[in-house]
Write a protein that binds this DNA or RNA. Structure first.
Length: 199
DNA sequence: GACAAGATTCGCT
DNA sequence: GCGAATCTTGTCG
């Protein structure tokens, strides 16, 4: 296994990256505790021409400032005052593209994930859905802006790669406010995985 | 400084 | 399937 370099995240096609990230291993080391899982579901958000993106059309605020950085950093924000959502910033400076990780399949540190989620046994609910996934891996707001080739959060390549025919392409979730852009086919998930937020 | 709304989840009907 | 929980952020006054 090998850690993905920052250069990987700086490719210019965020939709391709969202799909390519399916099957990669997402690892975190929080307070010295290691946990990891296979990415099973993602969504792409594009800074320009996508109303669903927090930084669409050059919108720049203290919260979205990180999105305008060069790809390869974490964008974590609190949604509904309850859930931490984890995004990967991609592309180059000023593009503001991002990939939202929506679900993973736990591979390492299942006990610690169960403890964080206050659950008794592993189930899809443990790490499916952006809020649940972040909590299971211990991702919090303090990881805002964290580099993805560091010691806290990173991704690793996995072999064999998930073939295209095993990845379903569909519309994104929970962004009805974005009008027509809510119908863009920018959500990807691994076929036959129990760890997907919604089929 | 005040107010409305959100890339969600869970529990109850 | 529906509605509450809960608080940061963005926008407006």
């Amino acid at each position: 296994m090998s850690k993905l370099p920052l250069k990987y995240y700086q490719q210019d096609d965020v939709v391709f990256l969202a799909k390519d990230l399916i099957g990669k291993k997402l690892c975190t080391c929080i307070d010295g505790v290691f946990s990891a899982g296979i990415v099973t579901e993602t969504e792409a958000y594009r800074g320009w021409g996508d109303k669903a993106c927090h930084a669409h059309a050059g919108r720049r605020t203290p919260r979205t400032d990180i999105m305008y950085q060069r790809g390869g950093v974490a964008y974590v924000y609190l949604c509904y005052g309850i859930h931490h959502l984890f995004n990967i910033i991609t592309n180059l400076e000023e593009k503001a593209d991002a990939v939202l990780i929506r679900a993973i399949e736990p591979t390492h540190g299942k006990e610690i994930m169960l403890q964080r989620r206050k659950l008794q046994e592993v189930s899809p609910r443990l790490s499916s859905g952006p809020g649940n996934m972040s909590k299971a891996l211990g991702i919090q707001h303090i990881h805002y802006g964290e580099k993805l080739d560091g010691e806290m959060i990173w991704l690793e390549t996995m072999t064999p790669k998930v073939p295209d025919e095993n990845i379903t392409v569909t519309t994104r979730i929970g962004i009805d406010y974005a009008g027509d852009d809510a119908h863009l086919p920018w959500r990807f998930y691994k076929n036959n995985s129990r760890f997907v937020s919604k089929l």
